[in-house]
Simulated assay, not measured.
Amino acid sequence: MSDAELAAHLAEAAGRILLEVRASGVFGEKALGKAGDQTANQFLVHALREARPDDGLLSEEEKDNPERLAQSRVWIIDPVDGTREYGEARADWAVHVGLAIDGEPRIGAVALPGLDGGIVLRTDQLAPVPPAPQRLRMVVSRTRPAKEAVAVAEALDAELIPMGSAGAKAMAIVLGQADIYLHSGGQYEWDSCAPVAVALAHGLHCSRIDGTPLVYNQADVYLPDLLICRKEHAATVLGQQKLVA
């Protein structure tokens, strides 16, 4: 099984597990998020250590092992991206399984199990990104929209689309449901590694909001910001970001 096939298989399987945990009906909303995180994490961690024992691993739900810093290949996972949305039985949550090679997000899969029938977007199965409408659409946090993103949206006269998880927002660009994902409120490597890998494979622009590359498998896993959009919009969005910063 190739790395991309493995990533997609595990993301899809973890999504099914999460749906089963929720369907059990034994957890309240708050406890459900914790139970889902821990259950999906155990599955993904054990599966990756079995399938790729020589690779490094970084998970939101696992104690960090600094030995990964000396490794070229590091799997970066988020068992439930959008724990609140998962607990609320919304559709905008995701499972991230990404592989960084020498710091670059090269392989990834993002499962969206909450959508009708569930889908997995992956780096090895590509579809054309639908064209943008005349008025651009920007996805922002449904609970804490970053002021920089709102200011850029106003400058571009872009429609704001509130949405949950980072993975759901990024995949909305890939699916043609939105056009710009500009985030400046702080994230971690597991929030964006798999989504960025998938977005890059689909020909989208992905960078920090100053235009510099996103680099993974760092000692400090905090990533303050990112931009995902179509390449033809990147210069305009980056220019507006500099004006409002």
Rank of each mutant, 00 (worst) to 15 (best):
Q240C: 06
A194E: 09
Y216L: 15
E62G: 00
N41M: 07
I173V: 15
T39Q: 07
V120H: 12
D225K: 01
T83H: 10
K242R: 15
I228C: 08
S59N: 07
V215I: 13
Y86S: 10
L99M: 11
S165R: 08
V120K: 11
Q71C: 08
W190H: 11
A4R: 07
T83D: 13
R16M: 04
V237R: 02
P131R: 11
R122H: 04
L227H: 03
A151D: 15
R22G: 13
F27R: 02
I228Q: 06
V152Q: 09
C206M: 05
R68V: 09
K34T: 10
E159Y: 03
D3E: 14
H205C: 03
K231A: 10
E20F: 02
M171N: 14
E12V: 00
Y86G: 06
M1Y: 07
K169W: 07
W93E: 12
V21R: 06
A94K: 07
A40S: 14
L204N: 04
L243I: 14
K231F: 01
E60H: 07
P53M: 04
V140P: 01
G108C: 05
Y86C: 06
P128I: 06
Q38S: 10
L69T: 06
N41C: 14
A155S: 15
G108Q: 04
A219V: 02
N217W: 03
